[in-house]
């Protein structure tokens, strides 16, 4: 009998270890960011090349840690000892701290090397870093709640793909801090992008859960009792639940993000909805997950079909995030490759 994924002693259950972990993470992030910024004071001239920026180096180091973390999470599938698991969590945690510190440092740096600084979520490179940081963070939250490390082996490859995309962007010379075009100068931007990426991250986690579910079910059907999938993956019920929770979080934040986007469009373009490709695709994403929730709530669907839905839904989400900017024209073209 597997352990339950819920805390054992009541809804108001507090685990001091977890509290300490998150407080430590917050303190380390802020402390290191403070240190990084302090060390940069008066050292940055306008136009400092990217490779000399501390944030760029930090991003690189953090990426290495996340790559290592991914490898350990995968290894943990085979060597399921606590020691291995702890290393995986530690690497992912430090990697996330590194990315967050890098983003905070970059925020400061943009103010030094550009005439007008900005929150570093304004071009494809910056939001990709943000996406990898948020997805890892969301996963770590789930891990600390459910204490299931096997999920990491499925979420981290998505993060890895993000890192790959980020490196490719950097190799194309798209990584340097750039001045904002007038359309992006809006307070709506910060809330809009933040909410969107929490949504994207949650959908990514759900897709990883979908893959896990399918593997687990297959192993169960084949009846190989000693199989790796049965040994390391949580019971299918739990994975199913994880998918639902991730999509629920994602759906609420994505709805908020889309509304914020509409509010921004209303202030900038004179209409809250213009059937711009990005808008239309976010509607498609919304409808995809709305259908998921209907099937689940009303029809009581669960299991295989919902796992596939989560995976395909993330495909639609990815197209909305990247495909629209890369393949279609529209008003979100500032997020495109140039």
């Amino acid at each position: 009998m597997s352990e339950t994924i819920l805390p054992r002693s009541g809804p108001l259950h507090r685990d001091n270890g977890i509290t300490l972990y998150w407080l430590g993470m917050l303190a380390l992030t802020l402390g290191l960011a403070g240190l990084a910024i302090y060390s940069q004071l008066d050292r940055l001239a306008p136009g400092t090349p990217l490779i000399n920026l501390l944030s760029y180096k930090l991003t690189g180091y953090a990426n290495v840690l996340l790559v290592v973390a991914t490898a350990i999470y995968l290894a943990h599938l085979k060597f399921t000892t606590e020691a291995v698991g702890k290393w995986a969590t530690a690497m992912a945690t430090v990697g996330t701290i590194g990315l967050l510190v890098a983003l905070l440092t970059r925020w400061f740096e943009t103010h030094q090397i550009l005439e007008e600084g900005h929150v570093p979520i304004s071009n494809l490179y910056e939001v990709t870093i943000f996406f990898t940081a948020l997805t890892t963070l969301l996963y770590l939250i789930l891990e600390s709640l459910y204490r299931r490390r096997s999920v990491g082996a499925f979420v981290m490859p998505i993060v890895l793909a993000g890192i790959g995309f980020e490196l490719w962007l950097a190799s194309k010379g798209q990584a340097g801090p750039q001045n904002l075009v007038p359309a992006l100068k809006s307070y709506w931007m910060h809330a809009h992008v933040l909410a969107n990426f929490i949504g994207y991250g949650a959908f990514a986690v759900a897709a990883a859960g979908g893959v896990m579910y399918l593997l687990r079910r297959r192993a169960e059907q084949l009846g190989r009792s000693g199989g790796i999938a049965l040994r390391v993956l949580p019971p299918s019920d739990e994975i199913d639940m994880l998918n639902y929770r991730a999509i629920a979080i994602g759906f609420v934040t994505f709805t908020v993000a889309t509304i914020l986007g509409a509010a921004w469009a209303y202030d900038a373009w004179g209409g809250y909805w213009s059937w711009d490709p990005k808008e239309t695709w976010s509607l498609i994403v919304w409808l995809t997950y709305a259908a998921y929730l209907h099937l689940r709530f009303v029809k009581g669907w669960a299991g295989n079909a919902m796992a596939w839905w989560a995976i395909l839904g993330f495909g639609v989400t990815l197209f909305c995030f990247l495909g629209v900017n890369m393949f279609l024209s529209g008003m979100h073209s500032y997020g495109s490759l140039n």
């Binding site: 059937w275 490709p277 239309t280 695709w281 498609i284 409808l287 259908a291 209907h294 029809k299 279609l328």
Partner: peptide
């Protein structure tokens, strides 16, 4: 009914794509 609702959600999603391409 749920089949009609799901069909309409999917239909709107599918035909919306035309105008983005």
């Amino acid at each position: 009914s749920m089949p009609v609702a799901i069909a309409l959600l999917s239909l709107v999603a599918l035909v919306s794509m035309i105008g983005t391409v």
